[in-house]
Design a protein around this nucleic acid. Structure first.
Lengths: 303, 303
DNA sequence: TAAAAATACTCCATAGGTATTTTAT
DNA sequence: ATAAAATACCTATGGAGTATTTTTA
């Protein structure tokens, strides 16, 4: 059975064409190298070198074997480098899930920064509803979730990244849309569009709490799943809503986004499974930690 | 230093995902395989397998290493096969020189038969004057010469392949060209075109002997090197000549090729260097020998 | 408790070293 | 006579086996 050591020694001799010199180069003595080559030739059943008394030359078959042996050794070196890179999370695959709101806020910049630093990691991006995130993370269907704040559990960890303020979305032809002094209380009778609590409890609760603090109970008529659907329905004049401020990036005509003074906000972050040993997840979290450290402070939870 | 044995054992484990079963498959005991893998992981500095109490699984890095290790092993197997093929003369390069007359006679069919049987041998075909053949063979500039008969010498060997009859080449407007009873003697005063003796002694001597036997000494005026040049000059009406019969393949207008009853002929064959250890030369000679054995008999000189 | 991998310890096959011979110029 | 590879012989490393322990579901 041919071993790599024999290929390395063969390559040394093929290069030096001198047993003693080649033996020195690979830290062997001449007799050892002599036997190595003889054993290799015996296993192949092929003479690789022609021994003339004053010169050693490669045979035609030896020349062919040299080219192939080089590629074998190169393939092994590639294997080593690639595998170490994989272990460092510099190569491989990372499956990222995100809620629609994350797609409008932190996801694009976050993903771009990561792929700039780790270009060899193949990303699988998948939009999910917030309610399905935790399950996807625990079953291992996804490596990483960009979603609303959740509480840490046995396996799933959470790290905060972003606070998104809310704003009021009004049809452009609503009386309050152009009012000098905006009054939230005037919205109490307007049909209210809000996603169901089961989809995204935190967002739902934050909006409801804000309405109640403003002195009214919203009359919820339509319950879409996605924020962009809410905005589209507001644009059609079907009601008003309270949505993440970033939704104004949609730049859809017919909707006015009213910022709220001392606005309530929803928190976003990363959710992952502590059991997940995908090195790319580790590299992602470390990368996010390094970026976060430049702005906030506490990144210890990423360890 | 990583060895192929470790890669083979790794691949077995990656396939079976069970130390005992994989160990059996590669004819080892479980503890041996265990240490092999541990040593491999230590050298890489990377965990390749995740050992759970009831199951062994590949890590992300292990999956990557598996793919690369497969290609390393495959590269070695290719190297072995290719090198053995090289040694058998089934792969490599063969430099063939031939005289122009060989190009009009035996060379094309000979080369075609060889390339059909040995498609992986790259052929370098080169036309040479007969006088330069022996030198090219002895210096090693060429592996094989297809040329006129020569006597065996210390290093160069000759094997006969073909007898080419001669014919007379006349301008179409020559009186003898259309004569009912052709008479060679009528050519004695015509300007005679013949290549110099230094270029191809055998051909030159055969033609001269024929002329003298026919009762005249040719009046040689022009001495081209190539037979096709002779034919072209005959076509221009510049004289007559005696050329290999195959030259009529040129189908050039203005020339009549007169076959000669009991024609003299020139012998062709292969010349090679006994010192030359190019396996493709051996495969060529063996192949020619096999083909020749179907027609004539004595191929012992090819050994 | 049982299944499976890791560890401890022993042995020997073989890679490698030293000394010497062979070979060809 | 000399340079260089092959051979003979010896040594010791490390790969492989057996027996045992550890681990976790």
């Amino acid at each position: 059975m041919i071993e790599l050591r024999q290929l390395r020694n063969f390559l040394a001799l093929a290069e030096h064409l001198h047993f003693s010199k080649a033996a020195t180069a690979v830290h062997l003595t001449q007799p050892s190298l002599s036997r190595q080559i003889a054993a290799l030739e015996a296993e192949l059943g092929v003479m690789l070198f022609a021994r003339h008394s004053r010169a050693v030359t490669l045979t035609a078959a030896g020349l062919d074997f040299q080219a192939h042996a080089k590629s074998v050794v190169a393939a092994l070196e590639l294997a080593i480098r690639s595998t170490r890179a994989s272990a460092r999370g510099e190569r491989g695959e990372l499956r990222v899930s995100f809620t629609s709101v994350a797609a409008w806020t932190l996801m694009p910049a976050l993903i771009k920064r990561y792929t700039d630093t780790f270009p060899e990691v193949r990303l699988e991006l998948n939009e999910l509803l917030p309610k399905d995130m935790e399950k996807a993370v625990t079953t291992g269907d996804t490596d990483l979730a960009l979603t609303f704040k959740v509480s840490d559990e046995e396996n799933s960890c959470y790290f905060p990244l972003h606070d998104e303020p809310l704003c009021i979305a009004l049809p452009a032809d609503h009386p309050q849309a152009t009012a000098d002094a905006f009054d939230v209380g005037q919205l109490k009778d307007a049909p209210f569009i809000l996603s169901p609590r089961t989809i995204a409890p935190l967002l739902h609760d934050t909006v409801l709490a804000y309405c109640r603090r403003s002195g009214f109970e919203p009359r919820i008529r339509i319950q879409p799943h996605l924020q962009q659907t809410i905005v589209n329905l507001v644009a059609e004049g079907m009601g008003v809503s309270v949505v993440p401020l970033a939704m104004r990036k949609m730049q859809i005509p017919g909707v006015i986004f009213k910022p709220i003074p001392q606005a309530p906000s929803v928190e976003f972050g990363i959710v992952w499974n502590r059991q997940n040993d995908n090195p790319c997840l580790v590299s992602f979290l470390r990368h996010v930690g390094a970026c976060a450290a430049e702005t906030h402070s506490d990144t210890s939870a990423l360890a």
